[in-house]
Amino acid sequence: MKIIVCVKQVPENDSVKIDPKTNDMVRTGAQGVMNPFDRNAIETALELKEKNGGQVILLIMGPDSFTEVLRDGLAMGADSAYLLSSKEFGGADTLATAYTLVAGIKKIGKPDVILFGRQSEDADTGQVGPIVAEDLNIPQATFATKVETISATTLEVDRDLESSIQKVEIKLPAEITVRSEINFPRYETPINIVKSFDKPLTIWNEKDLNVDPDKIGKKGSQTIVTKVYAPKKETKQVKFLSKKAGDAAKTIINELDL
């Protein structure tokens, strides 16, 4: 089973700046970590590999510094990693990001399973997986809480639709977006960290991918950010209660009729 896991790096803290001219988020400087939900996707991939054999390949789009996140994923146990890196890819919305990832996936060679984490912590909210699935014309199972192997070409996936659980049998190749509830991602062991430095990590730019320059980066994006601002806060007039917890509780119970 050939499994590609698309991962993303997100800033670790809130020190993200907005470029006042372009309205783009400037992330240089902010320390990046792997989107925590992506660890669940890697874990799912590793479990599928343990059961079915094959290989787990990581794919990410972003600047060269993102190789660190890929090393983390390799240290968890993935076999190889690809970074799609170029200035031309910058400023991409979900549509352009998916287009670029699809170009990478096609060049890697058609996988059986493409995995995504539920959503990234920052801007895009789990859209890229379904767009990639549509662009590749393969079926999807989003918000998965369980993935089981039925055969070499079929998986059974439980999807948590919030008010119901749906059981789906899906033919490969397929795209699956996993929820964080699906598993507990394994830790990187010292031995795997050492090994990760010998695993292949390939970097491709737009020329390697042979992409349409009008479909990548800012140019390929249909959405534009027009304004970034701090929301105005509605404030209330707070009534502070007695410092004695018992009196405070009584006041509330009386005034709110609890």
């Binding site: 998916a98 909210t125 789990g126 859209q127 662009d135 999807q140 989003t142 948590d160």
Partner: peptide, 24 residues
């Protein structure tokens, strides 16, 4: 609606239409 289903179907439709979609 930004429900599980809305979040799953809307981006597929977006990709077919090659238009913009803002989530959430």
């Amino acid at each position: 609606p930004a429900t599980v289903r809305g979040r799953s179907v809307a981006p597929r439709l977006q990709a077919k239409l090659q238009t913009g979609l803002t989530a959430d």
